[in-house]
Design a protein around this nucleic acid. Structure first.
Lengths: 239, 239, 239, 239
DNA sequence: CATGAATGAGTATTCATTCAT
DNA sequence: TATGAATGAATACTCATTCAT
């Protein structure tokens, strides 16, 4: 159920919507529908969206059910009505977050580009997605602090990621064949490197800004790091 | 119990001290002092050590004062006596963690090595330190989730990091002059890249293992990633 | 679902109707009426029946309005529509329960039997009724825990019981005159003794089974206790 | 405050202590000890005593932890400190209740009396105990409403009751041998009959008073019923 | 008549912190 | 210095009841 909401109606900009808010907005935009007062779907989405932010910002333990209810502008009781409890809500948020990024990624269509262009597209997309969805990184951080105890329960999470690995694999093979990339690269390692460079900068910029006395939240620093990631990855792939 | 872990096997590896304890232990090693710490000091250290683990594992919000007291085998009241409260204890843990890694780093003495060897040493040290001190990464993760709100209060944290930047700068300059590295590299970006690749793998391995169905906690995977970091950094530095 | 249980196995035993439903069912048996109750009536009965079970099993405080609605397979709103609220529903259940047992009792027609036979019939009927209607005892238990605060409000409850006392009185008088019973027995005390022996065994068999390590829910134990009640009562009445 | 009620009017009856309060009282009586402010034992007993009343009056589901804390004049947190939670506290109350009645009973020393006197003593004791300890009956009622789900967990509960059965058995045997009682009586059935007549009157007097319009809480009615129990039991035992 | 979303006042439990000894 | 009892303010979750459709 939560899935539907996340993946539907996204046209060009791949990583633009905040998790759990996109379709909701479409509904409210639709001119024929009046904003219903008793709208189960809307309420449920508002909860998921608010929960995503709260969990991302506060972590699982730090997140407050009351705060989620307040952010979602709903009665706390509804949260239990729709999701059953804090745990189940968190799992919904977690799965929804992965579905959202993988869905956006899937729309990149890397197969029809040159290996170099495809790889650049993937790197840039990932960086932009991380940048536009701070909640996603927050959720990952939280989940890893708990050693993925909730994610492990999810059966379909591996299947969700197979296409990504396949696609990167394809890029690397084609790139190696064309002499653009050096052969023998592990697609998972490549993806992890891209993610590492992007994720670390964004999640750790607060302490990094402090210890290096350098405001890494400035646009120039952010843009510069985005280019840096591309350079690092391509330096590594260079034959 | 927690003590055992703290004092175990420290011979060569430079970053071996438990977070927040290194400088104190030197004092206790001094031959003029009796080997056993005074109770006050011992208690205080036990609290700090236990707190470091608890905060790292549970985050600030998830950490329990009772749990820290129990881990430290001390009465909860002592914690307030020595540190004032949860907040102050957390700050002590945070500062101690940075002091510990920087102290260990300082012992590397990169200036007397060739740029290539020095850089390799720095990369390997950082990776090993992260590997041996999971609490450090946990603390950073927690602190960044709170946008470094506690770290910002610390006055001396920037000074603590100046030598590191200077040392890397020196390496890069010498490397560029010798034709080993390409010129114009930003030392902070270099350090952040090293840290990003190491930190991301270790902190995110739980979700990564799940989504890629690949046990990244295995020794072979860990060793392989360590080599990967070196390769990536040197590929980037290659002229 | 709840209906199935209600209608099962009722052939001879006169007190067969589910508590609170007896008089209504007679209406439905009437040949001039269609056999299927109108929805309103059916809904209302389903609620009453479900509520009887819920209150009996959980007590007033433990009973859940949601649980009653679910047992009755009706929308929770209907419960408020037909009965006004939890309190009023409980009162309806309580009164219905008394009406049911007294109605069944009235059908015994003790006046046309010999005193001994009549008394035996009353004892056996009471025991069987308690056995077949655990809800009745549960309701009584609940109501007494609240010191009959709801029952006191009922105006007609005393009138409902006058015939019972009169009937037992008649039996005792005729029995004393015939030399079967000793004279001067209090009909209320007699009834209370019968009820005490039956009720206590059934309601308290759970703890009694545990403390005496003897399964009092077994048929043999139950039958044996039924005979015991008869023996005790007749021993007491013996001139 | 709660103490006054408990200890009132008890001169000879051996089962005078309310669960968990006897030793406490001794402590407070001791002239050398001042009433300590931080008295773990006292607090723990106050909680147990308050909980016994609350559970007895309200049932498990109806009992409120806040109400128990208020009755005990302690901070609610202490309840969790000493007992762990509502469940565990209830179990403590339950076991304590049984221990209290059996301990009092054990002091009767029925073995050194004639069978008739011993039996009368047992009946009178039981009736008096029930009368003086309405909480005990309330707890039993509650526990049976839950089909003894908590009591079943108690390992020592059966052992606690063996001496009682043995003692009654002895009385019956000696009585039968002396020609006072008819032979072949089941001691458990005898005890259950005594308990049934006493318990039913006291727990059900609220509804009974209402339906028969007769105030069974009056002293005369209570005394009269006490004699009635003796008569019934002896009528049954009569050879 | 019927549905189920919505609500506010509770209800058990936990937590950081302080107090008395 | 050390101990553990005590506290009040949260915190997750539940319940009877009402509202909009």
């Amino acid at each position: 159920m939560s899935q539907a909401k996340i993946t539907k109606g996204r046209s060009k900009s791949p990583g633009a919507e905040t998790v759990g808010e996109s379709s909701n907005q479409e509904v409210s935009r639709s001119p024929t529908e009046r904003p219903r007062l008793r709208d189960a779907e809307r309420t449920s989405k508002a909860i998921l969206s608010a929960a995503t932010k709260e969990f991302a910002e506060q972590g699982y333990g730090g997140a407050r059910v009351d705060a989620i209810a307040e952010r979602a502008k709903i009665n706390k009781r509804m949260l239990y009505h729709y999701f059953g409890g804090k745990d189940a809500l968190y799992v919904a948020v977690l799965e929804g977050s992965y579905v959202a990024i993988r869905s956006a990624e899937a729309r990149l269509d890397l197969t029809h580009r040159s290996p170099t262009e495809g790889m650049r597209e993937l790197v840039v997309f990932t960086w932009k997605y991380f940048l536009d969805h701070p909640e996603f990184l927050g959720i990952l951080s939280t989940e890893n602090m708990h050693k993925a105890r909730f994610l492990k329960r999810s059966a379909r999470i591996f299947e969700l990621h197979s296409p990504l690995v396949a696609e990167i694999s394809g890029l690397l093979d084609r790139g190696a064949a064309a002499g653009d990339f050096r052969p023998g690269c592990d697609p998972v390692k490549i993806y992890m490197s891209i993610a590492a460079l992007g994720s670390f900068f964004l999640t750790n910029r607060w302490t990094l800004s402090t210890i290096f006395r350098r405001n890494l939240s400035e646009k120039s620093e952010i843009d510069s790091w985005g280019e840096h990631i591309v350079e690092v990855i391509f330096a590594y792939l260079r034959p």
